[in-house]
Amino acid sequence: MATIAAPKSGSPGTTLGTPLLARIGNTPLVRLEHLTADLPGIQLLGKAEWHNPGGSVKDRAAAAIVLEALRNEQVCPGKRLLDATSGNTGIAYAMLGAALGFPVTLCMPSNVSPERKRILRAYGAEVLWTDPAESSDGAIRKARELAADPQYFYADQYSNPSTWRAHYSGTANEILEQTGSRITHFVAGLGTTGTFMGVTRRLKEVNPKIECISMQPDSPFHGLEGLKHMATAIVPAIYDPGLADRNVEVETEAAYAMAKRLARTEGLLVGISAAAAVAASLRIAEEQSALGKEAVIVTILPDAADKYLSERFWGE
């Protein structure tokens, strides 16, 4: 199973500092105390995934995919890692390729934000731009087309089991440890579904009573970057809809409102999917509170606001 190598503890004379891979994971669990100030007995906590070196939760899956590929000699200086992505996974691959010494080719719709384009260029990844009207479909088609060429290893994050295993062995155990196993509810958005699948599988193994709630956009046309509307989307091979106890839908504008609220009341600048996850978690919190129950609700905050600061909603 793909796990990320733990840092070697430093005895005198050994090398100092922390290498890139060891900086992935073990993210802080932040308390959202102002949001739940009027909900006694409810704790709302978020994994601050922007603390990963590539700035998002996708470092975890990308590192697991890459380590597996390196072990199997599927990538090396002469063999390029190829995948379709519109965002954070691409950034994670580009960072890992730079640090571990293998070339990266990404297929990406050309309407990704300028911030993102600059980050990828800075890491030196090769990007093949696809038609924005075709959205991620165009990028996937391009990647599949190239996959037949032996110079590429097609990582295929939507079908690669490392995508969820990274969360099964990493994220979930961190949450158990950071909450002293007191977690009662887990909420996460669905993109590749790796985060939700991996964390939920592990949590249910440890305590089947933990309620696991998946979150997705309320409509196929949405602004929740990184998330998919499953009813109308090509469903990732790793997705098992039977795993969720419940599914919650979030409107794009509710996520925008929550992003601004988190900035102004918690001092947290989170990305749009993180804000959507908090909006969904707060609904669960209010329900539990109305039932007179206590709850420890944990969600995933996939990234910070920095890559979205040019979006208009901040000023509206």
Partner: peptide, 10 residues
């Protein structure tokens, strides 16, 4: 849309 989503398109 200003973003293409991290998921597959419809």
């Amino acid at each position: 849309p200003s973003i293409a989503g991290g998921g597959l398109a419809v």
